[in-house]
Computed example of a mutant assay.
Amino acid sequence: MQILFILEIIGTIAFAISGAIVGIQKKMDIFGVSILGLTAAVGGGILRDLILNITPPAAFQNPAFAATAIVVSILVFIPAIRNVFEHGKKFYEALILIMDSIGLGLFTVVGVQVATAAMPERNLFLITFVGVLTGVGGGILRDVFAGNTPYIFIKHFYACASIIGAWTCALLWPYTGSVTAMIAGAALTVVLRLLAARFRWSLPKAK
């Protein structure tokens, strides 16, 4: 499915940039930056495929995604480009927010699509769970490798945006078709994520 491949490539680029930026912020070398970009880009998909018993995971069947993530991470590491990312805290935070939001939305609906195709009978809970895991899994692994508290546990309602987007996509799927459902789910996820950051929407936290 061509649209699926395009969405995955765009999501891979977005998450690879976010992972590479975190590696640069942590003062890692080029190998560390590349691993963080790779992990953010394909980690969620690998976890998804293992749960759905798709072996080997798609990231190993088609090297295009891993290669794209590594190339993007290396490009981000180049001093001329790296200096742009390091120019000002607000610019850095805005860029990682946008890239993370795009990756989150796209990978969430890709996860819904893969789960729907892999299951003989629709299970809304599992489809939604797999969609969310695809969206947030790479970011969790990225943050763990970087020594940070995973973003989804402390920032606004990052995972909740993915849950709502995945659920919307899964519900619309039988009625609107795959393309419309995926566009709606991805767009809703991205919009909610950006609105949450803009208006400081947060879940209750332990005091």
Rank of each mutant, 00 (worst) to 15 (best):
L4K: 00
L4Q: 02
L4A: 03
F5S: 12
L7R: 15
I9E: 06
I13H: 00
F15D: 03
F15A: 10
S18F: 05
A20L: 01
Q25Y: 00
M28T: 07
M28R: 04
G44F: 12
G44M: 13
L47F: 08
R48H: 13
N53S: 11
N62Q: 03
F65M: 02
A66V: 15
A69Y: 08
F77G: 01
P79H: 12
P79C: 09
N83A: 06
G88C: 03
G88V: 06
F91S: 12
Y92K: 13
E93R: 06
E93L: 13
L97T: 13
L97D: 06
I98M: 15
M99Q: 11
D100H: 05
I102S: 02
L104G: 03
G105Q: 07
L106F: 12
V112A: 00
V114S: 05
A117K: 15
P120T: 04
R122S: 09
I127G: 02
V130G: 00
T134A: 14
G135V: 14
V136G: 06
G138M: 11
G138P: 13
G139S: 07
I140Y: 00
D143I: 06
A146L: 14
A146Q: 05
G147P: 07
N148A: 09
I152G: 13
H156A: 12
H156R: 12
Y158F: 00
I163M: 10
I163S: 02
I164S: 10
G165M: 05
W167N: 04
T168P: 07
A170L: 09
A170I: 07
G177P: 14
S178K: 15
T180I: 07
G185V: 00
T189Q: 06
V191Q: 01
R193M: 09
R193I: 10
L194A: 10
L195S: 02
A197H: 11
F199S: 00
W201Q: 03
K205T: 02
K205E: 07
K205N: 07
A206C: 02
K207D: 14
K207F: 15
K207N: 14
